[in-house]
């Protein structure tokens, strides 16, 4: 640990502290219908046609800190909570427990966010730029750049609902990077792009990271993670399995996925348990520098020299 005075944490861009996310969703499971409800409740459900609600734990106890210049890959099987984690980091949803701190507003590029399907790509560029808070002049300036990065040719003037999934992804990526966000969250958005676009988007992400930004990338291609990320996080059923160098995490994840695919549950379990036990648990401690309400008297506090008193800018 570096000296407290030098403020070794100046580089942190995103801090995720013990985040839990739960959803209550209707289930058509017959066993669920019979369970735990008394006669009146069941009758009411039958009459109203409502299904009983079950609790889905999408994320439990996720903690990590992302630093500037990192490109973090998220791996995990379907439904393991990768997209949920990105939505939470982007602040589009709030966790049931825990919190997320970020240096600037993260920008998320999702799979299915058609912005306004009726509008042409060009109009969507303007609208998207304005939605991110650019002024009309800045948006106007950004348009040619975005058009060029998207590389859609004349299709940019067609309604967005007529786009193929790859075309939509290209446009969304181009719009999202128009404002040069410091924190970029990409949820499989590049998966449908062709080779030419992959090249260009790589270059763009590189540039963002060099500007002290952080990129999160969800991809099912472990190879992509290995090649382009500096660090990887493996999620399984909402839990953090492993957090470390991309090569190592991606390799273990691949082994695990292979074992699952080959129907070797014991081997898969072994791999995951090993990873669990070797994992370095991260605890994120948030130091509140501005907390007028929870002010504790001076004499109860820890001695001043014990921890760096972070200064507000």
């Amino acid at each position: 640990m570096a000296e407290p005075e030098s403020n070794p944490f100046a580089q942190a861009t995103v801090a995720v502290q013990n985040v839990h996310v739960r959803y209550r969703v209707p289930s058509t499971d017959a066993a669920e219908r019979r369970r735990g409800a008394n006669f009146v409740k069941r009758a009411a459900r039958t009459v109203l046609g409502n299904d009983p609600k079950v609790l889905v734990r999408a994320l439990s106890g996720i903690s990590f800190v992302a630093k500037s210049g990192e490109q973090i890959g998220l791996v995990g099987q379907n439904g393991s909570g990768k997209s949920t984690l990105l939505r939470i980091i982007a602040g589009l949803e709030n966790p049931a427990r825990g919190r997320v701190l970020a240096e600037s507003t993260p920008v998320l590029i999702g799979v299915n966010a058609a912005l306004v399907p009726d509008l042409s790509g060009e109009q969507n560029i303007r609208l998207g730029c304005l939605a991110m808070g650019l002024s009309p002049e800045q948006a106007e300036e950004a348009v040619p750049d975005v058009k060029q990065l998207a590389g859609l040719g004349k299709s940019i003037y067609l309604p967005m609902k007529t786009y193929s999934s790859g075309m939509g992804a290209r446009l969304r990526f181009a719009i999202a990077t128009a404002a040069n966000p410091h924190i970029l969250l990409i949820d499989e958005a590049l998966a449908t792009g062709d080779a030419a676009f992959r090249e260009r988007s790589e270059a763009r992400m590189q540039r963002l990271r060099q500007g002290a930004g952080t990129v999160f990338l969800v991809s099912h291609a472990a190879q992509t993670i290995e090649e382009s990320c500096t660090r990887a996080i493996w999620l399984n059923k909402g839990r953090l399995v492993l957090d470390g160098p991309a090569q190592d995490v991606a390799l273990r994840y691949r082994k695990w996925a292979w074992a699952v695919a080959k129907d070797k549950p014991d081997e898969a379990k072994q791999i995951i348990e090993k990873a669990f036990s070797e994992r370095e648990q991260t605890h994120v401690h948030v130091e509140d520098t501005k907390q007028p309400r929870q002010y504790t008297a001076r004499h109860v506090r820890a001695p001043k020299n014990a921890r760096p008193t972070a200064q507000r800018k």
Partner: peptide, 18 residues
Amino acid sequence: QQAALEVVSTGRLSQVGA
């Protein structure tokens, strides 16, 4: 279990979605 402590301060980072 091995554990690492990361300290961040709200002076520089602010809560998202708040």
